Computed example of a mutant assay.
Amino acid sequence: MARHAPPAHPLAHAWARVRRPLLVLALLALLGFIAWRARSLDWAAAWAALLDYRPGTLLLAALAAAAAHALYTGYDLLGRYYSGHHLPPARVAATAFVSFAANLNLGSMVGGVALRLRLYARQGLPMATIVRVWGLSLLTNWIGYAALAGTVFLSGWVELPPDAPLSSHALRLIGLGLVSAVVLYLAACRWSRRRLWTLRGHRLELPHAGLALAQVVLSALHWALVACVLYVLLHGRVGYPTVLGALMTTSMAVIALRVPGGLGVLEAVFMALLAGLQPEAQLLAALLAYRALFYLLPLAAALLVYLGLETRLRRTRPATAPRMARPQA
Rank of each mutant, 00 (worst) to 15 (best):
Y81F: 13
Y81H: 15
Y82D: 08
Y82H: 13
Y82A: 08
S83Q: 04
S83W: 03
G84W: 02
H85Y: 07
H85M: 12
H86P: 00
H86V: 01
L87T: 04
L87C: 10
L87K: 02
L87P: 11
L87W: 00
P88Q: 06
P88D: 09
P88W: 01
P88C: 08
A90T: 07
A90M: 13
A90Y: 02
R91E: 15
V92R: 06
V92T: 11
V92K: 08
A93I: 11
A94H: 07
A94I: 10
T95F: 04
T95A: 14
T95D: 06
A96R: 09
A96N: 09
A96T: 09
A96G: 11
F97R: 13
F97W: 06
V98E: 14
V98D: 14
V98T: 07
S99T: 03
F100D: 14
F100N: 15
A101L: 11
A102V: 02
A102P: 01
A102F: 12
A102Y: 09
N103L: 07
N103Q: 09
L104F: 09
L104C: 13
L104H: 11
N105Y: 10
N105T: 14
N105K: 06
L106K: 10
L106E: 01
L106F: 03
L106G: 09
G107I: 08
G107H: 00
G107R: 00
G107S: 03
G107P: 02
G107T: 04
M109H: 12
M109C: 12
V110A: 12
V110W: 07
G111T: 03
G111M: 10
G111H: 00
G112T: 00
G112R: 00
G112Q: 02
G112M: 05
V113Q: 10
V113M: 10
V113L: 14
A114Q: 04
A114K: 08
L115C: 04
L115G: 06
L115W: 04
L115K: 05
L115M: 14
R116T: 06
R116W: 00
L117M: 12
L117G: 12
R118N: 11
R118G: 08
R118Y: 06
L119I: 07
A121Q: 12
R122D: 11
R122A: 12
R122T: 00
R122C: 08
Q123H: 00
G124D: 11
G124K: 01
G124I: 01
L125S: 02
P126T: 10
P126E: 10
P126I: 04
P126Q: 10
P126W: 07
M127H: 13
M127I: 10
M127L: 15
A128T: 09
A128F: 03
A128D: 15
A128Q: 09
A128E: 14
A128Y: 01
